[in-house]
Amino acid sequence: MDTLIDNSDVFIAGFRTTIYLFLISAVGALVLGVVIGAMRVAPVKAANVFGTVYVNTVRNTPLTLLMFFFAFGYDKLGLIDLSYFTLAAVALSMYTASYVAETIRSGINTVPVGQAEAARAIGLPFTQTLGLIVLPQAFRAVVPPMVSVFVALLKNTTIAAGFSVAEAGAIRATLSERGEPQLVVLLWVAAIFVALVMILSLVQNRLEKKWAVSR
């Protein structure tokens, strides 16, 4: 406990960065993932192809490699300068989006085709059919796997430590310089991660309960 209390500044700073990185990447991944997932079911061939290629390239690339690209490859492209934090968030968003897209697509497949037909029959265009009728029902069907995707994202944020983003995964390195026992530090980091994931599980339970009645 002393290890945690004596070094609370490092723990707080580290997990604050982790949570920021997680929240920003989660929103980015959700938005991008929904768009990519929608492209895969859109009645436009080019969109289908783009969605499929995106998922199959990004999902098949190790996250570390994607991080490497953004950390070292990006500034060679001569685009606007971005902080390592931003680049890490972009890499995590892009990577997680491929999983979100596939989860959503499997959710869309659970919605009976008659739901979309009825929406089209009252004159809703594709975007509204998807946004108002199909996606809300698809989300309800995939809450557990979707939360798993975000649990993975939360833990994947630690990879950013390798690229100078001082989040929770970097706490051990910082504290070993202060002479703290490394095993104890790692156990504390792990314990806090477990607690954070439990918050996500709680969100999952709430969503499942809330949406169970309306079906």
Binding site: P112, Q115, R120, A121, I122, L124, Q137
Partner: peptide
């Protein structure tokens, strides 16, 4: 596209399996 959606709005449809929006 949109012209089709607009025309569909003029044509009511009732299905065998009702297809009410479940949510």
């Amino acid at each position: 596209g949109k012209p089709l959606a607009q025309l569909r709005a003029e044509v009511g449809m009732v299905f065998q399996s009702f297809n009410l929006f479940a949510h």
